[in-house]
Amino acid sequence: MPPRLNTRTFARSIPLRSKPQVRWSARTATRFAPSQCRPYSDFTNSGANDRSKKIDAQPADHISEEAAKTAEIMGEQGPDMSKGTPVEEIVKGDKEAQDKLPKVMKDKLKAQGNAAPKGSRSYSTMTTQTGAGNGLDMGLVDVQAAIKTPQTPGLKFEMPTLPLPKDGHLKYRYDPVVEQVTNLIMQHGKKSVAQSNMALILQHLRTSPIPTINPAKPLLPGAPPPSHLPLNPILYLTLAIDSVAPLMRIRSQRGAAGGGVALQIPVPLGQRQRRRVAVEWILGAASKRRNVGSGKGSLAQRIAQEMVAVVEGRSGIWDRRNAIHKLGVAARANIVLPRKR
């Protein structure tokens, strides 16, 4: 009989939510749907914003049940559910009961500790994506068969097929991430220079070798395999930026803490703001890199190298992001929520 408990599950101090399966959609209808949810005022409303039915909102299974389910899926023999749950599980999280355990078990508990596994964060850094069908844009345009509109008599040209192509508008012909990065690269209002730098960055990503992902620096969940990245440079760029983008910023409120110390309050960032912060970090790191070549393409090359370093987990930006998140977790008590009426 296999051991009833997977020892690895002990290591988890906080039960991680199972991640929603990200599906690849060739064309995403909406990239980012701002939620209209007001959490305290309309909790009775069970409309589209009600996430209680969602699988990721369900409380995690009991540890043995989860192990049994996993074993069933994997086709292995899991713990026998008809038998009792071991004592360790019962006393878990119960300080009073733990004191009354025999010494052997106390020592064992202490040894395993509540420490998170080395190299992984003790808190989640992923946002849940609201709205279905979201995911990374695979850059495939118009591969899906578009809906054919019925023939209408009296038209000189055919009716346009719906949905309209996303690059159909003259002013929005670039991908939103590309557009944003271009604007952030721009100096002295010289947009066409920024655009040609952007094109060089994408070309560099396209010709760079397949990145090796560092498991200690996980990319976004649902990221495509690294072999897909160089052929889709926009996805590569988006993945690098979104993976390293921080979830919050720390606002220092002066005079709120007293004693001349600023009160640090974490403030959540929107998607565009998060990307902006990430791009500015990347640009800062790139400008500190040594310029090895000569000529006009060197800035683009350094930025592209930094992007590759981010995806491969070599970049120092990851530490920066972790520091912000850690500070945010530490200062979470300073958040003042609106009073409930």
């Binding site: 396209r206 010709t207 760079s208 070798p209 397949i210 160089p230 052929l231 090895v292 070549g293 000569s294």
Partner: peptide, 17 residues
């Protein structure tokens, strides 16, 4: 070396199919 890098001719991209 810098000039050689600038003038380098690359005729292959291993990522392309």
């Amino acid at each position: 070396e810098r000039k050689a890098q600038r003038k380098r001719i690359v005729l292959s991209n291993n990522n392309a199919l």
